[in-house]
């Protein structure tokens, strides 16, 4: 299990003052690709000076990509982690680039033995560069690869156990996959090694034409909080973090969402 973090929110430059002023923020996360490797935004320096953990979260390592790992991106993440003196870093179980193209978003990998071997090799190589704990996050997908050989739970479990990684469990992504792909989030919670939990992501989304989009730009649905409750009934999460990336609401609304998260964790 990862070290205690508490309740946090994703730091974004658009809401830097909001995050600085908000009561009861125990830690924050920053998108590593948005940070220079040699100097921090003033707001993050303020938070670090207060002793708040700031965790770099990467979105572009493409750890599930079968082409050679882009070690420059891993080195950037490591440099940002050094600058923040971060206890851990994270990225997703996904691929982003292939065949010379960049999807601009997190794409699911085939749940096959061979794709698992690719991930294990890339994550092992990345860890040797990072030199600190790496947490891997489950993603939301709008499509599924055919011919899966492993359940998502089995796939994630083997991945983190073989690479000695932590888990960053995104309950909003689990909720999205339940809605869009018919995945069973409770079965997933039962099958993943929660003793390796680093922290949890919570986010909102919106349903358009029968498809649930995990936008990080809308209110957190009750179903996502219920899943957080399911998780908390199995394990006390070291941390829970709200991700909000767009269409920022008032400070009061964000504070209410954090309070709702805190209430679920404390229940």
């Amino acid at each position: 299990m990862g070290e205690h973090l508490g309740v946090g929110i994703g730091w974004r430059s658009e809401i830097d003052l909001t995050v600085e002023r908000m009561q009861g923020v125990d830690f924050v996360e920053v998108v590593a690709e948005n940070i220079h490797r040699d100097h921090l935004p003033e707001s993050l320096r303020v938070l670090r000076a207060r002793g708040l953990p700031v965790l770099p979260h990467a979105v572009s390592l493409s750890l599930g990509g079968a082409e050679p790992l882009d070690t420059d991106r891993v080195e950037h993440l490591a440099a940002v982690a050094d600058l923040l003196d971060a206890p851990l870093v994270s990225d997703h179980v996904c691929f982003v680039r292939a065949g010379g193209l960049d999807s601009g978003h997190l794409m699911p990998v085939p749940r096959t033995r061979d794709a698992l071997e690719v991930l294990v090799a890339n994550v092992t190589q990345a860890r040797s560069i990072l030199g600190r704990p790496l947490a891997l996050e489950n993603i939301a997908a709008l499509l599924e690869w055919p011919n899966a050989e492993l359940t998502e739970a089995r796939f994630l479990r083997e991945l983190v156990e073989r690479t000695d990684c932590l888990l960053l469990v995104d309950v909003a992504n689990m909720w999205a996959n339940a809605k869009n792909l018919g995945a069973d989030p409770v079965e997933l919670l039962d099958g993943i090694p929660l003793e390796r939990l680093a922290y949890v992501h919570v986010a909102g989304g919106v349903e358009v034409d029968g498809v649930y989009h995990d936008t990080h730009a809308h209110a957190v649905p009750q179903g996502v909080l219920d899943l957080l409750g399911e998780l908390c009934s199995r394990v006390r999460p070291p941390g829970v973090l709200l991700e909000r990336d767009d269409r920022y609401p008032s400070d009061a609304v964000l504070a209410d969402e954090l309070a709702a998260i805190r209430a679920v964790v404390a229940a």
Partner: peptide, 17 residues
């Protein structure tokens, strides 16, 4: 599926998308 085959399948998916 080898690593090359996974790479090819991922490339084909992105070209389609």
């Amino acid at each position: 599926m080898s690593r090359e085959e996974v790479a090819a399948a991922q490339g084909e998916l992105l070209r389609s998308l």
